[in-house]
Amino acid sequence: MRNLLKRSFSGIIYVVLFITAILVAKESYIVLIAAFSVLCVWEFLQIIKLKNIVPYLFFGMTAFLMMMRPQSYAINGILGINLISCLFLIYQLLSKKEIKYETERQKLGFTIRYLIFSLCFLLLLPFYKGEYTPYLMIAILVLIWVNDSFAFLVGKNFGKRKLFVSVSPKKTQEGFIGGFVFSLIAAYIISLLNKDFELINWIIISIILSVIGTLGDLVESKLKRQANIKDSGTIMPGHGGIFDRLDSLLFAAPFVYLYINFII
């Protein structure tokens, strides 16, 4: 019970902070994501055992250039590299292959391709057609939070069949289905309130967030299992680290960005 109260309290602070930063101004959103990014990079470097300042500098430089020139063709190349890296991680997860990063150079490349580029696209998500659209970002967050919350609730109360026991013993197939279904319901409600996209687009976005987000969560769990740690950090009591809290959204961010900016 005490752990549940801790989890709920830190979760509420996280949600209020995130939504407030989004609604106040684009600058406050950028500052918040930049702060989260520094924490994520620090926690990730602890997981893969890399002590190097380059990832922080590379994130700052890449994020700045992408924000200054959002229409640059270089972003397409970065997106392609990020997507291929994520798809390869999914392959390694499903094929039960070890995610290898032995040398410092390999660890640095892995950090850039997987984490830093994903953080940059999380930064760009609310910018649609050159305009800052806060309610688009809030809708994306609601979809992934609904998926995560109902996956947890349904899995805890009705889960019997394990989803991926070798990586995350607590996740169940029933939990995944519950999160998926409720995120579709949330997508329908959002389509009534937010007219940026049609219903079919919100449904596809919810599917991307649910499926790719769950895979991202499992990839992070695999990385932590390989490193023999439970949580990426301790900054959020009951949740772990910021990387633990953002893993699903981070992994799905480049896929949602691709759909919103190149397919719709």
Rank of each mutant, 00 (worst) to 15 (best):
S168A: 11
K160A: 10
T20C: 08
N76L: 15
R7N: 00
R7M: 00
Q106S: 05
Y29F: 15
A35Q: 01
P254H: 03
P254V: 06
L153I: 10
S191T: 10
I81W: 08
S28V: 06
V165G: 00
P55I: 00
F121R: 13
K100V: 15
E220P: 07
H239V: 02
N194L: 10
T214R: 09
D217L: 00
K162Q: 01
I81A: 12
K100A: 12
A187K: 05
A187V: 02
Y188H: 07
S210L: 01
I185R: 09
L65D: 07
Y128H: 12
R225C: 11
N194K: 09
L124H: 14
G178F: 04
L124N: 15
I204G: 08
I212M: 11
G130T: 06
L246Q: 08
M1Y: 11
M1R: 02
I189H: 01
L209V: 09
K222S: 15
L94Y: 06
I177R: 03
N194E: 14
C86N: 12
T234E: 04
Y91K: 07
V167Q: 13
T20D: 00
E98F: 03
F243G: 06
K160E: 10
Q46L: 05
F9N: 01
I13A: 14
L108D: 09
E131M: 12
L119H: 14
K160N: 14
A253E: 00
F117A: 06
I204C: 02
P237I: 05
A34H: 03
K100I: 15
S221K: 09
V31W: 12
K230C: 12
A151R: 04
S118D: 12
G109T: 08
L258C: 08
L122M: 15
S210F: 00
K156Q: 13
S232Q: 07
V146K: 06
R2H: 04
G178L: 04
R69H: 14
Q46I: 01
N157W: 11
L215S: 03
S8D: 03
V219I: 15
N82V: 07
L215R: 01
I78Q: 13
V24I: 15
L39H: 09
F176D: 02
S8L: 07
Q71A: 13
N82I: 08
K96H: 14
T111Q: 03
I99G: 14
F182E: 00
R113Q: 12
L258D: 07
V256D: 03
L123F: 09
K97D: 04
M137G: 05
P126L: 13
T172V: 05
F164Y: 03
E102P: 00
L250Y: 03
K100C: 12
I212R: 04
T234G: 01
L45R: 11
F251E: 08
N82Q: 12
I264R: 08
I200M: 05
G130M: 04
